[in-house]
Amino acid sequence: MSKKAMEVVKNIDLARYMGRWYEIASFPSRFQPKNGMNTRATYTLKDDGTVNVLNETWSDGKRGFIEGTAYKADPKSDEAKLKVKFYVPPFLPIIPVTGDYWVLYLDDDYQYALIGQPSRSYLWILCRQNHLDEETYNKLVEKAKEEGYDVTKLKKTAHTNPPPEAEDAPEDKKGVWWLKSLLGK
């Protein structure tokens, strides 16, 4: 069965897209801590036009994180198809691993987004707040379904209020799961 080409957001304003996004729901990876919560991503635009990516999650009170770089897959294209590169292991930059990051939906105010990639094995619903109203959530799920995703695999991410401050938590040294989950290995 041939699936139609995925629709990707065009003419994204990367500068506006920067900042912190909370993971509202995602396809869980078997490497991700089952009890991972308060998962979020922080994007910072660098002078060379690439994006610094900081992914964080909390598990058993410990903060796990991995940093990487995102950049447009094709600088000439107007489509929001990014590549994200992490180095594994995070503290020893030896093996760069690259994954796809396609923005499938983004509201006009850059407040919530649907992120996928060509294999349809991964899906993320992100929001500037750590909660999203049911109507908007369902709209994003519907959009994912239209793009050929098996939305029954979506699992909502638990968040605490207020969200934790990074400095408060002891570090989780096993932060390799981000990378594995990105690669689907």
Score class of each variant (00 low, 15 high):
residue 2 S to D: 04
residue 3 K to N: 12
residue 5 A to S: 12
residue 7 E to S: 06
residue 8 V to W: 02
residue 8 V to A: 03
residue 10 K to S: 05
residue 10 K to N: 04
residue 11 N to I: 07
residue 11 N to T: 05
residue 11 N to K: 06
residue 12 I to S: 10
residue 13 D to S: 11
residue 13 D to H: 06
residue 16 R to V: 04
residue 16 R to Y: 09
residue 17 Y to C: 03
residue 19 G to Y: 01
residue 22 Y to H: 03
residue 22 Y to I: 00
residue 23 E to V: 02
residue 26 S to H: 12
residue 28 P to M: 04
residue 28 P to T: 05
residue 30 R to F: 08
residue 31 F to A: 04
residue 32 Q to F: 07
residue 33 P to M: 02
residue 37 M to K: 14
residue 37 M to S: 15
residue 38 N to H: 07
residue 38 N to T: 01
residue 38 N to Y: 02
residue 39 T to V: 13
residue 40 R to T: 02
residue 40 R to Y: 07
residue 41 A to W: 00
residue 45 L to K: 05
residue 45 L to D: 03
residue 47 D to G: 04
residue 47 D to R: 06
residue 49 G to L: 07
residue 50 T to V: 03
residue 52 N to S: 15
residue 52 N to Y: 15
residue 53 V to I: 11
residue 54 L to I: 07
residue 56 E to R: 03
residue 60 D to L: 08
residue 61 G to R: 06
residue 62 K to L: 13
residue 62 K to P: 11
residue 63 R to I: 09
residue 65 F to S: 09
residue 65 F to I: 04
residue 69 T to E: 13
residue 69 T to W: 11
residue 70 A to E: 01
residue 72 K to N: 14
residue 73 A to K: 09
residue 73 A to C: 09
residue 74 D to V: 04
residue 74 D to S: 06
residue 75 P to R: 11
residue 76 K to P: 03
residue 78 D to Y: 07
residue 82 L to N: 09
residue 83 K to Q: 14
residue 83 K to D: 06
residue 85 K to T: 14
residue 87 Y to M: 15
residue 88 V to R: 11
residue 89 P to N: 07
residue 90 P to G: 12
residue 90 P to D: 14
residue 98 T to G: 00
residue 98 T to F: 02
residue 99 G to F: 04
residue 100 D to W: 12
residue 106 L to W: 09
residue 107 D to I: 09
residue 107 D to M: 05
residue 116 G to T: 01
residue 119 S to L: 03
residue 121 S to Q: 15
residue 121 S to M: 12
residue 122 Y to N: 12
residue 122 Y to G: 11
residue 123 L to Y: 02
residue 128 R to F: 01
residue 131 H to R: 07
residue 132 L to I: 03
residue 134 E to D: 14
residue 137 Y to G: 04
residue 137 Y to D: 06
residue 137 Y to P: 01
residue 139 K to T: 14
residue 141 V to C: 03
residue 142 E to Y: 14
residue 142 E to L: 10
residue 144 A to W: 00
residue 146 E to W: 05
residue 147 E to N: 04
residue 150 D to W: 09
residue 151 V to I: 08
residue 153 K to A: 02
residue 154 L to C: 00
residue 154 L to Q: 00
residue 155 K to H: 12
residue 155 K to G: 05
residue 155 K to S: 10
residue 156 K to D: 02
residue 156 K to S: 07
residue 158 A to W: 15
residue 158 A to T: 13
residue 161 N to M: 11
residue 162 P to T: 02
residue 163 P to E: 01
residue 163 P to R: 01
residue 164 P to A: 08
residue 164 P to H: 01
residue 166 A to M: 10
residue 166 A to R: 08
residue 169 A to L: 14
residue 169 A to G: 12
residue 172 D to M: 01
residue 175 G to R: 12
residue 176 V to H: 15
residue 176 V to F: 15
residue 177 W to E: 07
residue 178 W to N: 08
residue 178 W to C: 10
residue 178 W to D: 08
residue 181 S to L: 08
residue 181 S to N: 12
residue 182 L to W: 09
residue 184 G to Q: 13
